[in-house]
Simulated assay, not measured.
Amino acid sequence: MFNKKKKLQKLVARKLVTSVSPRSIISEQFRTVRTNINFSLPSKELKTLLFTSSSIGEGKSTSAANVAIVFAQEGKKVLLVDADLRKPTMHYTFEKSNTPGLTNLLTGHWHINEVVKESGINGLHLITCGPIPSNPAELLGSSSMDIFIKEIKERYDMIIFDAPPALSVSDAQILSNKCDGTILVISSGKTEKKNAVKAKEALQTSKANIIGTILNNYKLEKNHYYYQFYG
């Protein structure tokens, strides 16, 4: 039991590197991401940001969590929303209960104040997925989602959504149309070029405002660190 707990703690530390190791080269890269996001739309306020990828396992959820943390470290009031209603992970990452969460709110059973959780990081709040629904795309495209986004925009400086991969289901396309900006996460050496292009085209079809990409798991030959950057 002790070894299992230690293993979980190490996994969380690796995922939330910007909180656990803020001076690391990876954390610095996430701060670079933050800077580039701030400068991506200088003439327009960017409050809602969607993270997606072409396929599973490319690091979109980890990237979303760490970008949310560095924005909170900057002094912003940040909300991180697990909008992957098919395979949620944020409750594992932050070691929180998955319920109540976003699906409870969208189905009208709970109020926003009842589903927002403390993340354990100053300035960052969390809304987990909640019970996995039978109709995720319909929930994300509902008027309840529009009302939710309008309300949280009034409460927070930055809202970050973690969405499912763009090529797997339509959820990311639906939600990207509702957000101010979208970031596509690409895993170095894993993401196939054709899939990245298809994901970009799918998002553009839904009129997503793709403000950039994050190249994940890029290996530096000199010191073998893995880091991420925005471009």
Rank of each mutant, 00 (worst) to 15 (best):
I186T: 00
P42W: 11
E154H: 09
T191D: 04
F71K: 07
K96L: 07
M90L: 15
A13C: 09
A65L: 01
P100K: 01
L41A: 12
H111S: 14
I26G: 08
V33Q: 02
A83I: 01
N209K: 11
V78L: 06
A172P: 00
V197Y: 02
W110Y: 15
I26S: 11
A65K: 05
S168T: 13
H224G: 01
T99V: 12
E74A: 14
R34V: 08
P165A: 08
N122R: 12
K153N: 13
K194T: 13
Q73C: 11
E118L: 09
G189L: 04
N223S: 15
A166K: 00
Q173C: 07
E138Y: 08
F161T: 06
K5Q: 10
P164A: 01
P131I: 09
D171V: 08
G101W: 01
F2A: 09
Q29K: 14
P136W: 06
S27Q: 00
M158C: 11
Y218V: 15
I183N: 00
Q29P: 04
G231H: 13
L167R: 04
Y230P: 05
E151P: 00
K200D: 10
D162I: 02
K207G: 08
K4I: 12
A83F: 02
K198A: 15
A83K: 06
K198N: 07
K200A: 13
G212V: 05
P133A: 06
F30H: 10
T99R: 10
Y226R: 03
S43W: 05
N66M: 08
K200I: 07
K96S: 05
N98M: 08
Y218T: 15
Q29N: 14
G212Y: 05
I211T: 08
Y92M: 01
L126P: 06
N38T: 11
H91F: 07
F94D: 00
K150W: 02
L80N: 00
K219M: 09
T205Y: 14
K153D: 06
T52C: 10
S143Y: 12
T205M: 12
L11N: 06
I26W: 05
F71C: 04
N223P: 01
